[in-house]
Design a protein around this nucleic acid. Structure first.
Length: 471
DNA sequence: CCGCAGTTGGA
DNA sequence: CCAACTGCG
């Protein structure tokens, strides 16, 4: 009669959870544990929006366990002392977890594993958030891939539909006295800016599957085109669920495949474009593993002396608050603030404006996204910002500067997205909605600010600065 | 060593 | 057409 600890981290699910299944296979009792380590992930400790999500996801997991006669044991503190405490009070000799891939987490886990083993505790770790471990994918020259297309060409053919692990049934859940209340984590920020998040999101394993079902029923068929239209719910919106491991890529692949198979061949949706996006996520994790300094340093070393404009707080604040006077940018930043999420197409546009037109360092944008996105993810955030800024792996070339007006006209032609997030402009006809500055009276009538920059001039200045630096 | 190709654009 | 460069096989 032995007990095993299952340490939950970014795997807040009971299905397809290798650590949980393995623990249950070898032990008669399982003690589910979550440790709130306030600072171990510094400088990338959880941002505000992520904290909101985590709060609700932990509550959801706790409820799931209660329905099964158990409960999630919560403690606050550093991982090793907290684990030792629980080990001592529960008489446990084995700890199971699923791996994480952020540099700080790897260092921490390596240390904890070694320390526990030295005191005679078994530690077992598993792969649960990626299709392939980062060290398993290499070029013919035994180097990590730096370009997505060859990476994907090498990985995709090796992926197959695998039956996900079922939730273990009949588990005897263990607990010890002294669990902290969830409120003790103080995860909900003092400023209740997140009060509308609940209208968009349902954190937790069940919420993840509801979202996936919505995607299958609605957007999947038309994904390749619809995913570029910010007014539509054309994307999967699974990113925060994936980040916290409420659902795994394996489960998604399996579910999409099964869903597609049930539809007759002529109307069967093509799941490849979406799998490719999951491939980007996988690629981002692999890059972060192989290039652990990229969260703070440009992937391309040439950019070490890139002439970013001097930091400008006033300018940054207007960008953050959605007060730039550029409709698509302001709409996106307000969507982010109000829902904790922004459509990917719009993310590229706001990031391009900050890093290219305004020439602010990409880290300023990355940090804001880190704090405000419910799907803030070190691997994806780093890759995304460096890609837009032009200093990343497989990055956009410097001369590719998004024009927010033409992007809006192309992907939100009827202005639905702009009107949703810029209600003060909702009454304008489409041409003025896309370019409110064309009528000087709009600013007075609506209170909408005149643009803080000239798109053409700032573009030319950015190209000029790049060219003279590059020469 | 050679050849091919490279997420998302703008004017 | 903007620039060439390099990752990869």
């Amino acid at each position: 009669m032995t007990t095993a600890i299952v340490l939950f981290r970014r795997d807040l699910r009971l299905n397809d959870n290798p650590a949980l299944s393995a623990a249950y296979a070898s032990h008669s009792r399982v003690l589910p544990l979550y440790i709130h380590t306030e600072n171990e992930d510094a400088p990338w400790q959880l941002g505000g929006a992520s904290r909101w999500w985590l709060h609700h996801s932990l509550r959801a997991l706790h409820e799931q366990l209660r329905e099964r006669g158990g409960q999630l044991h919560l403690c606050k503190g550093n991982t090793l002392p907290s684990l030792r405490d629980v080990i001592e009070h529960s008489g446990t000799r084995a700890v199971y977890w699923n791996r994480r891939y952020e540099p700080a987490a790897i260092a921490r886990d390596t240390h904890v594993k070694q320390a526990l083993r030295e005191q005679g505790i078994e530690v077992h770790s598993y792969s649960a958030t990626l299709w392939r471990e980062p060290w398993q994918v290499q070029t013919k020259q035994d180097a990590p891939y730096r370009v997505f297309t060859p990476y994907w060409r090498s990985v995709r053919p090796t992926l197959s539909v695998v039956e996900p692990l079922p939730e273990p049934t009949g588990v005897e859940w263990a607990d010890i006295p002294g669990s902290a209340p969830l409120e003790a984590f103080e995860l909900l920020p003092r400023i209740p800016w997140y009060k509308a998040f609940g209208e968009s999101w349902c954190p937790g394993e069940r919420g993840a599957w509801d979202m996936l079902e919505l995607f299958c029923d609605d957007a999947l068929r038309d994904y390749a085109a619809a995913r570029d239209r910010p007014a539509r719910h054309g994307t999967s919106r699974l990113s925060p669920h994936l980040h916290f491991g409420e659902i795994s890529p394996q489960q998604i692949f399996h579910a999409l495949h099964r869903h597609a198979q049930r539809i007759d061949t002529r109307r069967r949706p093509d799941i490849e474009p979406y799998l490719r996006e999951l491939g980007w996520r996988e690629f981002a994790y692999h890059l972060l593993y192989h290039f652990p300094r990229t969260p703070v340093e440009s992937f391309n070393p040439r950019f070490a002396d890139f002439p970013w404009a001097p930091d400008d707080d006033a300018l940054l604040r207007r960008w953050q608050q959605g007060r730039t006077g550029i409709p698509l940018v302001d709409a996106g930043m307000r969507e982010l603030w109000q829902t904790g999420w922004m459509h990917n197409r719009v993310r590229m546009v706001v990031a391009s404006l900050l890093t290219k037109n305004l020439r602010q360092h990409w880290l300023h944008g990355a940090r804001w996204f880190w704090d405000t996105l419910v799907d803030a993810d070190l691997a994806n955030n780093t890759l995304g910002w460096q890609w837009v800024a032009g200093c990343g792996a497989d990055a956009a070339p410097y001369f590719r500067i998004f024009n927010p007006v033409s992007q809006a006209q192309k992907f939100d032609p009827d202005g639905t997205y702009l009107r949703r997030w810029l209600p003060e402009l909702a009454q304008l006809p489409n041409d003025l909605l896309h370019e409110p500055w064309k009528d000087a009276s709009v600013a007075q009538r609506t209170g909408y600010l005149p643009p803080m920059l000239n798109l053409q001039a700032s573009r030319a200045a950015a190209l000029g600065a790049y060219a003279s630096w590059h020469a």
